[in-house]
Design a protein around this nucleic acid. Sequence first.
RNA 1: GAUCCCGUAGCUCAAUUGGAUAGAGCAACAGCCUUCUAAGCUGUAGGUUCCGCGUUCGAUUCGCGGCGGGAUCACCA
Length: 549
Amino acid sequence: MKALLYQQLTSIIAELQYPSVEVLFDKPKVEAHGDLTTNVAMMLAKSVGKNPRIVAQSIVEKLPVNDLFLSSVEIAGPGFINFRFAANYVVENAKRILLEHDSFGKSNFANNKRTNLEWVSANPTGLLHAGHGRQVLLGQVIGNLLEWTGHIVTREYYFNNAGNQMRTLAESIYIRYCQELGEDLPFLEEGYKGEYIVDIAKEIIAKKGDSLKNVGDDKSYFQKYGEEWCFKKIKKTLARLNVKHDVFYNEDTLYSTGKIKEVVEEFRKKDLVYDSEGAVWFRATSFGADKDRVIVKSTGEPTYRLPDIAYHREKFRRGFELIVDIFGADHIATIPDVLNGVKALGYDTDAVKVIIHQMVSFVNGEEIVKMSKRNAKTYTLDDLIDEVGVDAVAYFFVMRSVGTHLEFDIALAKEQSDKNPVYYLQYAHARIASILRHAAEEKFAVDLPLVMNENTDYSLLKEKEEIDLLKKLLEFPELVQNCAVSFEPHRLTTYLREVAETFHRFYHEHRVINDDKALMQARLTVCLMTKIVIANGCKILSVSCPEKM
RNA sequence: GAUCCCGUAGCUCAAUUGGAUAGAGCAACAGCCUUCUAAGCUGUAGGUUCCGCGUUCGAUUCGCGGCGGGAUCACCA
């Protein structure tokens, strides 16, 4: 609806021989200010040397006002031009919702941009804890948003199954194994203390008995078993949330194919590294950091920075035009080093978008839920899903902007009542489904093909609540785009809540099922359109839409 | 001490990315079901947007300086 208005205004500005400016629209906060507003007059006022209201007046005079397009055009405040669309125009536009149905909201905005989305990337040393949920769902929804806006998305999980932490995992399992067999061994200070380690040990005993007690230094069986066990669990948890990665990228391939070495050599050539105290240091200070960083330890093992740099270079080499990483705030320190390293290798780091989300705290009503990684009683993501359900988990983790700390109220998420925002949204969907069921019993067209064939008289839709609802629904495609380009999934939850609210108001004010058959059919169509938008939005959010509640 | 994020109603958070009178939910109060799902709707009350200065037609939003909270500052990942 914006496009036409944009065209008209641009040509009017040219006709009036004003300097050309980009015409931008906003949706006014206050309903009295119309459906759309523009500040072009104020932008032009400076260069034209006239009062903005006068400039606005000269533009407005050239705009037609009728019931086919604009029902009103007004100048307000310091020089805003406010537009209100005619009901007919809104209704005509809304038909595209039916035509596009499942695809309503999709676009090829990004023109099939090859995109890599990396997230979760937890190493297979344990289970996903509840706090991981934010990252899991953010990535899921951002991936969906990117796909809906014309990105070809490769969903990727980067992991490391070598090094210190894996040795610690093997040791931890081994000690539990021996303890379960009756040995009185002290546990590792820095070992993984979670109960799952004991579970793994018990499984190994069931399979192997005590035959591995005297393996000596070679704990590779325990390591491999532990890794596979953890990965299986992690993937199972992700699957419960419908999360599926296309690529599991093993850090080890960066070593085995020589990519790590290659990076160090190139850094050396460019004098970006130097040797000191037996280690190799990256000149982070020449990129503005407060101190240089070790990238190869004196033991010869790289620190995490080096493989991270090599990995990001590989993403570029694999042909990705957009590289999205999602990290928790606890990883914030590593990001500048990695980006600087990749830049030094000659890649455009503008193509790398790093999304950092703040941490999550859990409350159960008044009570604060503690969870520590090394604590035996870890509150896992599975526990959380068991407690509040998949839909609430999916919705709650994305409903706040990534920059703020998220307080997850378990009691609220669990509550099946009006307090819970997930139910509010799902209730609207179920309510519509119920209306459609009733209508179907009376032989009304409620399925998409039927509605499309029906001679629905859309001009019967003129009530304020009907038009408001349709306007709201028509915002959906642009909203999806905005959420995608700004990487802000929470705005989708805000929007869907508004859709539900606008629908509930419509429902309350006007009966859908009534004696006026033609009007009833038109209103059924509005219901169907609303159902489509809620369903599409929920699909992006990975939240289900029940037909009944 | 340094870097990054945050500070908005009693609580949890929005605010179309610089717009007009800062909005929702919860909590509080007052109403609405013999008719399509009351898991809903309507209304009342609640604010010096942490403080100060600056940028401009216009600041919750941008800049600088404070104050407060969180995260991170390894030859751990």
